[in-house]
């Protein structure tokens, strides 16, 4: 259709007239929606405060320096807690996610009608709730502290790990499984010889990746009382001790950088 013939020459355009008009109409529509939303936001903003923002930010920054370095003595334990929350939570998630992934994968689930939907539901519900929300609920149920943090991280990560793992299980090479089946192996043997070796690299990669994410997530859990460095952060903010806040932010940054470096190294070693 985009080819037209004029005086013996065949002309080619990317789109014919109708398609081109449609594209323009869609672009115009997007622009109108954006302008409308902008005006809504603008109405509800107190612009005086926004005009003031650079001064306010400068003021806050001036109160944040220099960081209160001596406060570091009290932070070491909090950092240690944060790392432990992330690590133990990841460990718990990985152990629980492994069997759930096998129940959820189309090619290994014992029953597509009953068990697979249950496994998928566990995965979705675990993933749909942010770890901060998990922590909020768990703190009310089992009280504040590190345990609530570990469980919050764990519950949030089960879905993530199980989802990625069951996708890996669904992508395995079937012929290797067939070959093990053809020897007369039983179901568990087929699983152990035919499937597990194929997904082991994915499994290790997923675990390290999630641990890396969990380090970052566990730094804020303290805001709702679930232990870790976030506890100190919320206390310092409440006391308007901005020099302590800036130190804490620096420590969080450092921890995250180290964890990213470790996970990159480990993943590189596995693959």
């Amino acid at each position: 259709m985009p080819v037209t013939e004029t005086a013996g020459t065949r002309l080619w355009k990317r789109r014919d007239r109708k398609a081109q008009l449609t594209v323009w109409a869609i672009q115009l529509g997007c622009l109108m929606v954006f302008s409308y939303c902008w005006s809504l936001v603008s109405e509800k903003t107190i612009w005086e405060f926004v005009y003031d923002a650079p001064t306010q930010a400068g003021d806050m920054a001036s109160r944040m320096v220099p960081p209160a370095w001596d406060y570091m003595d009290k932070l070491w334990l909090a950092v240690w807690d944060t790392i432990n929350i992330a690590t133990l939570g990841t460990l718990m998630a990985v152990v629980l996610a492994f069997p759930i992934a096998f129940l959820a994968a189309r090619n290994t689930t014992p029953s597509k009608v009953f068990i697979r939907p249950i496994a998928l539901f566990i995965i979705v519900s675990s993933r749909s709730i942010n770890s901060l929300l998990w922590a909020l609920m768990l703190v009310t149920i089992i009280g504040p502290g590190v345990l609530a943090g570990v469980l919050a991280i764990g519950f949030r990560s089960i879905g993530f790990c199980a989802k990625l793992l069951y996708e890996a299980i669904e992508e395995i090479d079937v012929s290797q499984v067939e070959a093990v089946t053809a020897t007369g192996a039983t179901g568990p043997q087929i699983l152990h010889y035919g499937i597990v070796p194929q997904i082991l690299p994915a499994f290790a990669g997923i675990s390290v990746f999630r641990w890396d994410i969990n380090i970052r997530e566990s730094t804020v859990l303290g805001l709702v009382g679930a232990g870790g460095i976030g506890l100190q952060l919320s206390a310092s903010i409440n006391n308007v001790a901005w020099t302590q806040v800036s130190l804490i932010l620096l420590v969080v940054l450092g921890t995250v950088i180290v964890s990213e470096w470790v996970s990159a190294k480990v993943r590189h070693a596995i693959i």
Binding site: D173, S175, Q176, E178, A179, V180, Y193, P197, Q198
Partner: peptide, 10 residues
């Protein structure tokens, strides 16, 4: 098998 179908990582 055609593509050998060995368990590659064993």
């Amino acid at each position: 098998f055609q593509e050998y179908a060995l368990v590659e990582r064993l």
